[in-house]
Design a protein around this nucleic acid. Structure first.
Lengths: 151, 151
DNA sequence: CTGTGAGTTGAAGTGCACTTCAACTCAAGG
DNA sequence: CCTTGAGTTGAAGTGCACTTCAACTCACAG
């Protein structure tokens, strides 16, 4: 068990395609040493970074924000468990908010299933009036935009 | 209060940009009558369709699947409250699943915050081993892909 | 009748997160 | 040494959900 991983090793162990790993490197999310022949060799600690990236994506964070978060790690030493715990904790609020919104949507949907309304004028799900629009692009939605987007 | 809406009316009342409404029409999600001068005029019932579309996106459903769902509505008559209730109910399971996954992620994250692990080998968040990959593209992830992707 | 804001079209552009491709080099077992 | 699978690169392509643009027409208040 050598302590440096090839891109194939990291791909298999993380479940992330080699092309995605190279993409993450271009964005500055992970890093690799190079062999004399210019091949990537990853420290085992990169596994943790990749794990953090995938988990963060689950939470609904963009790669750009993930990069910012990872940049806050100390670069002098290998991040400690506490470092990782801190980063993970910082997503906690977002996750709570996502769960809260989705749960509200479910409850509202249950109410609407009862009445069959789906009315944009009256249903609690929707837009509380017409006095929207004209607040710049994307600023006029009541329902949060599908945070879903990527991938 | 006339019973037909211009695209601007529908946009303001639904909170969806005119360009998006035209896009929805191209995809067959909504429909419009035309004036003699070729301008769109929407029946008020289209408001409900747009509401359903936005709600469905919140649930994490793609426009293509939403189209399929809408296609199941009776086209002879204006959909009844029950028709809408049925469609909404069909998303209920997906919403439950999304909430379940996110809640599990939160709990796991809490556990990991405690130990600071984020280990791909041991953490309950991740990949239960290396025996993945080679099951076709995208089939090797433990964590569901970020259903998030679009918009 | 006219000016103006609202509407029309198809084609192209955007942003994100990747994937695919071609042409090439590396690493390691037999 | 040679073959073969794994790795390298930059550029281009993909899919989704839209937005933007240019060039044009409509609808309606005055």
């Amino acid at each position: 068990m050598q302590d440096l991983l090839t891109i194939g090793d990291l791909s298999v162990r993380s479940g992330v395609a080699p092309s995605a790993l190279r993409y993450y490197e271009r964005l500055g999310l992970i890093r690799a040493d190079r062999t004399g022949g210019n091949q990537r060799r990853y420290a085992r600690s990169e596994l943790r970074r990749v794990a953090f990236i995938r988990i963060s994506q689950q939470v609904g964070v963009s790669l750009d924000e993930i990069r910012a978060a990872l940049d806050s790690l100390p670069d002098a030493r290998t991040p400690s468990p506490q470092d990782w715990a801190g980063l993970s904790a910082s997503w906690r609020g977002r996750l709570d908010e996502r769960i809260r919104l989705l749960t509200k949507l479910r409850d509202d949907l249950d109410g609407c299933i009862g009445c069959g309304c789906l009315s944009l004028q009256h249903c609690t799900l929707s837009n509380p009036g017409d006095a929207l629009a004209g607040e710049g692009p994307g600023a006029r939605l009541m329902l949060a935009r599908p945070a879903e987007s990527p991938a």
